[in-house]
Simulated scan of single mutants.
Amino acid sequence: MRAIPTDRGACPFDPPAGMADEPLSKVRLSNGDQVWLVTRHDLVRQVLGDTRFSSEIDGGFLDVPLHAVQPQLGMFIQMDPPEHTRLRRLLTGRFTVQRMQRLRPRIEQIVTERLDALERAPRPADLVAEFALPIPSLVICELLGVPYAERASFQEAGTKLLTLTGTQEELEEAMMRLGGYLAELIARKRAEPGEGLLDDLLESGLSDEELVGIAILLLIAGHETTANMISLGTLLLLQHPDQLAFVRQSPEAAKTAVDELLRYLSIVDVGMFRRASTDLELDGQIIREGEFVTCSLAAANRDPALLDRPEVLEVSRPKAPHVAFGFGPHQCLGQNLARLEMEIAYPALFRRLPGLRLAVPLEKVPFKSDMAIYGVHRLEVEW
């Protein structure tokens, strides 16, 4: 049995070599677990849309084996209906396109402020630290009502939770630190409510443990993914000046480009594990009850059946039904916010700094091959 492909080969922007060799196959994770790997677009949507493939799973990264667990309270990404439905329903209306558009002026202000700071930074500057990470961090902190000045309390622990090289003990310790900080924050909010989503949820009847789980999920997912897309997307566009010029043109051009960048990069790839809750048939193969499945979103988004020339970046192409945000009941709750942040950040960056360029050769850029979310640790740039 082959190991799950992880080597991206010559191009750091492509899925791991060999990932899509078969639409459905058994592979071995680095922790020794055996899982079904799904890579074809229609099969990925089938798995992610079928709740008989249970989401109540913990682990799957290196030293942490897969096993069915009682999910942490509030962590609805690891829940099945009806509990998943109950918690997600409390949040869905708060992340609509209309709600997110109300944040546009504030996001534009944050982007401008970060560009000011980037221009003042010594050169070469780290685009991740000065621009890509602060934007979604500031936005999600304001949205949730988490003090941005306390970001060190969650960013370090959040990074550890996404590190593929962590042991069970290290991950549990990081979760305890993050949960402890948020429990203390929620206690402060109960004593003196403020403005923010967490403050609003105090009146929802949720327990403090559920609020902590929701906060952990939204806090980590709300800044890590978008930060990596901004930095990795910038790096990719710097390699394609003609595509970059299109992004710089107008808000509508940027909107089209964002979806193509999401499809092409697919920074969340095989982390969506599922467990068959009964015997199931998939592409003519029986998946037995209790067996585990993982979907390669990157391979699915490069499926030739999805669109013509999927291996080519074309930021002006019409939107394809990609699965970069997942699919089905667990499709990313914050996708409208992530899109908006990128639609504002990319053109603003390229207009303010038309001479933006890499300060190091591409092969010297430290990619996050050790993280559950793909991206770059640093991106040194000049202009």
Rank of each mutant, 00 (worst) to 15 (best):
D200A: 11
S204K: 09
A215N: 08
L217W: 04
E209S: 15
L198W: 08
L219T: 14
E203F: 02
I216R: 15
L217R: 09
I216K: 15
I214N: 13
E210F: 13
I216M: 15
E203M: 10
H223Y: 15
E224W: 00
E224T: 03
G205A: 03
G205W: 00
A221Y: 10
D208C: 14
L211W: 04
D199V: 06
I220Y: 11
D208Y: 12
A215F: 09
G222T: 10
D200W: 06
I220S: 02
L206Q: 12
G205M: 02
G213Y: 05
A221C: 04
L198P: 12
G222N: 11
G196V: 04
I214D: 05
V212S: 04
E209F: 09
H223A: 01
E224H: 00
L197F: 06
E210Q: 07
L201R: 01
G205Y: 01
L217E: 07
E224Q: 14
G222D: 07
G222L: 10
S204C: 08
D208T: 15
S207E: 14
S207A: 12
L202C: 01
G196R: 00
D200I: 00
T225A: 03
E210M: 07
L211F: 01
L206Y: 13
L219P: 12
L217P: 12
D200R: 13
S204P: 13
D208E: 15
L211N: 10
L218G: 13
S207K: 12
L201F: 10
I220D: 07
I214C: 06
A215H: 13
A221N: 13
L217Y: 04
G222C: 05
A215P: 05
E210T: 07
I214L: 10
E224R: 01
A215M: 09
L219V: 10
G205V: 00
E203K: 14
D200K: 08
G205P: 14
E203W: 06
E210N: 02
L219Y: 10
H223D: 02
T225D: 00
V212T: 12
E203D: 15
S204V: 02
D199A: 11
L206V: 02
H223K: 01
G196E: 10
E209P: 11
L218C: 09
L202M: 07
S204Q: 01
G205E: 03
L201S: 04
E224G: 07
A221W: 04
L197A: 05
G213V: 08
A221I: 06
T225Y: 04
H223Q: 05
T225K: 02
L217T: 14
G196F: 00
S207G: 15
E210P: 08
H223L: 08
A215C: 12
S204W: 09
E224P: 11
G213L: 10
L197K: 01
L219A: 02
L197R: 06
L198Y: 05
I220P: 12
D200S: 13
G196K: 03
L211Q: 06
D200M: 13
A221M: 10
S204M: 09
S204D: 05
E210H: 10
E209C: 04
L198V: 13
L197T: 00
L211H: 06
A221S: 08
E203L: 13
G205R: 03
